[in-house]
């Protein structure tokens, strides 16, 4: 099985161009996001800024750390995360772009709005799939 996630009709998986390129970059410590001339930030794949319509999107280095904006500890998971539960999912603001990921490196009870995290790539415990991790220092 490939290391990526889009599900084919036969249940197999293919690579998601753009998003998996982003995960590759993040994995090698060179994370980026796409920024329009107006400063709106998004994850790939993206050809146009949905905020202002700008099409001149530039790869911009992802800041080293972000701050958790909201979080939840998931107790009832989908089958693809069954063995990961309970786990913390959060949205974190990286000053220009927001990322959603699984929070690791901290006791779930200690996660707070404002907790500082870095973005990494790790694997799910359930199926070894690549997953965006927000790692608390």
């Amino acid at each position: 099985m490939s290391e990526t996630d889009a599900v084919r009709a036969d249940g197999g998986r293919v690579r998601d161009e753009g998003y998996d390129d982003f995960l590759d970059a993040l994995e090698s410590g060179e994370g980026y996001y796409l920024e329009c001339p107006e400063g709106h930030g998004w994850l790939p794949p993206r050809r146009v800024c949905p905020e202002c319509g700008g099409t001149d999107l530039e790869e911009t280095a992802l800041p080293e750390t972000g701050a958790i904006e909201t979080h939840t500890t998931v107790h009832v998971a989908a089958p693809s995360f069954a063995d990961d539960a309970p786990y913390v999912t959060a949205v974190a603001d990286f000053d220009g772009v927001r990322l959603t990921g699984v929070v690791r490196g901290i006791d779930p009870e200690n996660v707070e709005v404002g907790t500082e995290v870095s973005a990494e790539v790790d694997e799910t415990e359930t199926a070894g799939e690549r997953v965006l991790v927000l790692h608390a220092e």
Binding site: D16, V74, A77, A78, F81, D84, T89, G101, T124, V131
Partner: peptide, 12 residues
């Protein structure tokens, strides 16, 4: 891509 692959469920 951005949510389900990061463990998002509807209740989450």
């Amino acid at each position: 891509l951005y949510e389900v692959r990061a463990g998002m469920t509807f209740p989450a």
